[in-house]
Design a protein around this nucleic acid. Structure first.
Lengths: 152, 152
DNA sequence: AGTGAAAGAATCACTTA
DNA sequence: TAAGTGATTCTTTCACT
């Protein structure tokens, strides 16, 4: 179980994980050791998935964000295994969700430009058989992007 | 500008930013100081947006991922300012893109359950006037989620 | 790009409420 | 069971080469 102090620590860390133990401890009115033990516990129990640096896609010439909506008629376990394996192995796929409703899968793709996207598209469609309908939509502007969950 | 070594460092850090300077330096066959200077530069020049802890939504009882597709007829600057301000201020909105094509905006929402989603939906729709069409789709399963950009 | 020293931070055995 | 002290070790940072 988790208490208010743990939640405050998580809220701080998902905003900035370079905060020192001392700064975190001060923020929750503890000294470093009990604070450190809490962080250890939160990590061990899986509340924290990892610590990462977030990079700027524009600066790295990955300016095109595309969304792919996919329909399939293959609903057997073999096909699913193959599809998820391909998706996980393609680094351009930033996220993939199995959806309720009209479309079966929603993917977010990050690439340099349209030409690169087209090449990616072909690789995906050729890599996985049985895709019935694949619709691409393109982002004009990123208005918000955060990894911070709505805690409280 | 950025070279192969910088790219390798960024690739490592976006996977795990707890790696020590020593480990990073070893990985790119440098000693700590030149490695540290590169990291400093990459940060100063904006290649690195931030360092964050990624939390587990399931463990924190935020199990429902929803996507919202929004159409509007308001395309003036005032409306846009208001819409983006509202979206940025709502912590349940994890991302928001202005789209090309049929729908104008795509949002990803993270909440506890359907009841919470419904409350959020009402707050959004009441908070912003001029939303013509709002379609909600729900994720059944997260197959992939990464913050790591496809470098190389 | 590297050396080496100084400052700062994390980790842990042990102590206390 | 949860928090604190203090020592040790590891890490970062920087002037100098």
């Amino acid at each position: 179980m988790i208490d208010k102090t743990d939640l405050r620590l998580l809220a701080l860390l998902q905003q900035d994980c370079t905060l020192s133990l001392q700064a975190l401890a001060d923020a929750v009115h503890l000294t470093t050791t009990p604070c450190w033990k809490r962080l250890k516990r939160l990590e061990d129990e899986g509340y924290i998935r990892g610590h990462v640096a977030l990079l700027d896609p524009e600066k790295l010439a990955l300016s095109l964000t595309a969304f792919m909506l996919i329909k399939t008629q293959q609903h057997n376990s073999n096909w699913y295994q193959q599809f998820t394996a391909v998706v996980k192995s393609m680094p351009e796929v930033m996220s993939c969700y199995r959806m309720a409703g009209e479309y079966d899968y929603l993917l977010r793709i990050q690439v340099a430009d349209m030409k690169t996207y087209d090449a990616f598209y072909k690789r995906l469609v050729n890599g996985v058989s049985g895709l019935l309908d694949v619709t691409s939509s393109f982002a004009m502007e990123e208005i918000k992007y955060t990894t911070a969950l709505p805690l409280n």
